[in-house]
């Protein structure tokens, strides 16, 4: 054994190799595969165009998504448009529209259209007397 240094070198290398495996295992960058149930695939953001046409311009007006006020305040003209960038999940998203007219105002209407590129996703007309509180759903998939 003493006369065979290459054997000693080989044993030393084997020893280091064996020790290296657990050290590498403990220190490597961990890439854990998430459980399938927790995978959340984020929907890509879409550029939507919201167009609201009022028969009579309201006194007050707001557009809201969850806790976020997209626009509110002064009465818009008969036609109002808003560019909305939003990630729409498969379940869709709800846009809350509120508008108010004077108490003496006659019955009026508001038409809500929502487009993605040239595709009209939503076309709804609401009839009301003094106030309007309506939820408009943008579908999660493009209706063919």
């Amino acid at each position: 054994m003493e006369g065979r240094p290459w054997v000693r070198i080989a044993l030393l290398l084997i020893g280091f190799s064996l020790l290296g495996v657990p050290v590498w295992s403990m220190t490597r960058e961990k890439r854990l595969r998430p459980a399938l149930s927790n995978v959340v695939i984020a929907a890509p953001a879409q550029q939507l165009r919201v167009i609201i046409t009022f028969a009579e311009p309201p006194l007050s007006f707001s557009l809201k998504y969850l806790d976020e006020v997209l626009c509110e305040g002064a009465a818009p003209d008969r036609e109002f448009s808003y560019n909305w960038e939003i990630a729409v999940p498969p379940e869709g998203v709800d846009l809350l529209l509120k508008a108010g007219w004077p108490p003496s105002a006659p019955k009026t209407a508001a038409r809500v259209e929502i487009f993605r590129d040239d595709t009209r996703l939503v076309d709804q007309t609401f009839w009301t007397q003094n106030s309007l509180v309506e939820s408009v759903t943008v579908p999660g998939t493009n209706p063919e």
Partner: peptide, 9 residues
């Protein structure tokens, strides 16, 4: 309508 709109679909 306003209350439910607080909750994502």
């Amino acid at each position: 309508t306003e209350k439910v709109a607080e909750l994502p679909r």
